[in-house]
Write a protein that binds this DNA or RNA. Sequence first.
RNA 1: CGGGGCGUGGCGCAGCCCGGUAGCGCACCUGCUUUGGGAGCAGGGGGUCACAGGUUCAAAUCCUGUCGCCCCGACCA
Length: 488
Amino acid sequence: MSKGVTPRSQDYARWYTDVVLKAELADYGPVRGTMVIRPYGYAIWELLQAALDSRFKATGHVNAYFPLLIPKSFLSKEAEHVKGFAKECAVVTHHRLRAAADGGLEVDPDAKLDEELIIRPTSETVIWSMYKRWINSYRDLPILINQWANIVRWELRTRLFLRTTEFLWQEGHTAHATEAEAVEEALRILDIYQDVIETEMALPVIKGVKSESEKFAGAVDTYTIETMMGDKRALQAGTSHYLGQNFAKAFDVTFRDQHNEEQYVYATSWGVSTRLVGAVIMAHGDDRGLRLPPRIAPYQVVIVPIYKDDTRAEVMEEAARIRDSISKNGTRVHLDDRDTVSPGFKFSDWEMKGAPLRVEIGPRDVAQNSAVLVRRDSGEKQNIASANLATFIPPLLEEIQTALFQQALDFREANTHRPQNWEAFKEIIDHGGFARCGWDGESETEAAIQKETKATIRVIPENQDPKGLKCIHSGKPALYEVILAKAY
RNA sequence: CGGGGCGUGGCGCAGCCCGGUAGCGCACCUGCUUUGGGAGCAGGGGGUCACAGGUUCAAAUCCUGUCGCCCCGACCA
């Protein structure tokens, strides 16, 4: 393995892959399009999971688990939903293998399933088949269930974390008595996503709603949070759908209201995935590797001891003492005691892995009762008395968290433009960035823009104001103000 | 499914045109010296050259076939 990564400016896609592999976040799986999430990458996901899960619980949601295998017939019950997923489903057709003549294994033709099974691409259909059994009265509502699961979507073009054939996510599925309640739920979740992504991941988001062509198959409305990556492209970080009564009607889920009237249930579904790990990498990384926001860094502080044979004992003793003092207030700290690699290697290694702070401790520092503290985000070094480290570090981590958010926000603002005409628009899309402009609301216009520039409507922002705007493509009066960009 | 390319130690490649029994970098192992920005030196281990058949005294190299993979065009968090 060579040193360093491909510079971002040279080849952003390769830089990204280099970082994922060299920071040991993930590796390619044996089946095309699959990936192994390695311990360090999984640790980031676990921190995100915890941040999300506690917020879900705090708003009344509970976790459950539904089966991986879905009868094929279920998927076809909601017309739009089938259309959306049919082209990327893995199908289970048999349930047994047998010894083959060549000594290997083959599918036993006698073990063909009567009804083929789909490996879930999302769980609306299984879940609503169950909700039908569980919902009879308004007294059974709302149901606020979330599940942490893996799903499979047979993707043609895959990229580690961003788009893989199998991925991990959470999917919430709620059932409500009224439209207002369901819409409120979808928006509440969007707020939670925004909070987690901005507070924990230090990544500013744009909240809003998707256009007709970009929304989830089977939804009435899809709410989204969009983020800008380091190459100025947009990344959809999470979506929350108001499903109306579409699934209730498809699965015949009704309840008796207070007046003994039979009503269809109103639904939402919402999810974020391991794609978020990819977002952190692309939004904050630099040519030295990953830069993790402290709140989701597996190790917030890494201690690198520097010693020779004759100084090893005293340095390690002091390093361990510093580690213990830092961890006392809950900071996640790691003492890198590997004897087989040099300190210089460890510096680079932990920079690649994005640890927010590094403490260097060698004989000189031991003698002075101090340590060298290095920030990953800025590279800034300072000497600090060992006794002060434990109290100095927590506020510094907060400062780094804030600095990363601010950098990402400044970057997004600097690369968000309001073109006044088509030529200017094309220029912006060509150079990369968000274009905020008017749209006449026609899907034909949207398609034409995409065809000519590869840009899509990422979001109709919640604070949009089309007054006085003209459609950037057709020139007609704008119905919406939208964010257009090339996307992942 | 249409167009282009590649299969050689774990990874990245050279060798192929012009047949002569396999090499380089990284990684790995051992030892010594090192350790404050990806250590140095010395030694060492590891390859059915994708597979099958053919030509030849001799095939990684030439011929035929098969398989696999990657890249580019219609979907998606």
